[in-house]
């Protein structure tokens, strides 16, 4: 019997190695796997590369992980937002590496990794600072930039419903990067607000089929961090 449901956060986070690349779902606070991030802080892995849209806010969650000196490098599209104080301090002090990637290129690089595509050309960023040093080619009369796939060792994501096979649904705009990241990591760990019986999810409505998911941990809505 396949059963990907694990009993707690510690079991969910077991085995994440130092030096890992971690794909972190969410867009701002929405769809962000808060308890898994806290679990990662607890778990202790360091020298991490984090791939996320934003670079954390306040002093909890991702910001806390960075403040503890556990993040060597962050790959994101929008590091600076209201309350991204920890990131800004570390960046000014030269204590964190930053790779800025246009948001669509970030999503597509992960989609490519999940789909076994090594790299692709896109017009996005052509002629800008973010294309500096990158190979370009004119395709279909348009100059384009070569971008490489971006996969992770681990993806931490938030789902709305899950079953024991790891089939997932999401809630509204909480789907965002989660569904893409689920496909792009060696080990995909989902926290979910609901666990339902196998067969209860409408097959037409499953967004992430269980083939992409390795571990599922139940974190009901009420236990969401304020």
């Amino acid at each position: 019997m396949i059963d990907k449901i694990v009993r707690g956060i510690a079991e969910a986070m077991a085995g994440i190695a130092d030096g890992s690349t971690i794909l972190l779902g969410g867009f701002g606070a929405v769809g962000q796997p808060d308890q898994l991030i806290d679990g990662l802080i607890e778990q202790g892995a360091r020298d991490l590369t984090i791939v996320a849209n934003n670079a954390g806010t306040g002093r909890t969650g991702l910001a806390r992980l960075m403040e503890l000196g556990r993040v060597r490098r962050i790959i994101c599209s929008f590091p600076r937002s209201v309350g991204s104080v920890v990131f800004e301090e570390l960046y000014r002090a030269g204590r964190i590496e930053l790779e800025i990637v246009p948001q669509g290129t970030l999503a597509e690089r992960m989609r490519a990794a999940g789909a076994g595509i090594g790299a692709f050309f896109t017009p996005t960023a052509y002629g800008t600072l973010l294309a500096r040093g990158k190979e370009t080619r004119e395709i279909g009369g348009r100059p384009q930039v070569l971008e490489y796939a971006l996969g992770g060792d681990v993806a931490l994501i938030e789902a709305w419903q899950a079953d024991r096979w790891g089939n997932l649904t999401y809630r509204k705009s909480g789907r965002n990067f989660n569904a893409v990241m689920a496909t792009a990591a060696t080990l995909t760990i989902a926290q979910t607000h609901h666990v339902v019986d196998l067969g209860a999810l409408d097959p037409e409505a499953i967004v992430t089929p269980g083939i992409y998911v390795d571990r599922v941990v139940l974190v009901p809505y009420g236990e969401r961090r304020a």
């Binding site: 670079a55 929008f78 800004e88």
Partner: peptide, 15 residues
């Protein structure tokens, strides 16, 4: 610029 933020602007502008 210290840590500029691009978001989706380049994708939107090009696409």
């Amino acid at each position: 610029d210290t840590a500029p933020a691009i978001g989706g602007a380049m994708d939107l502008a090009a696409g």
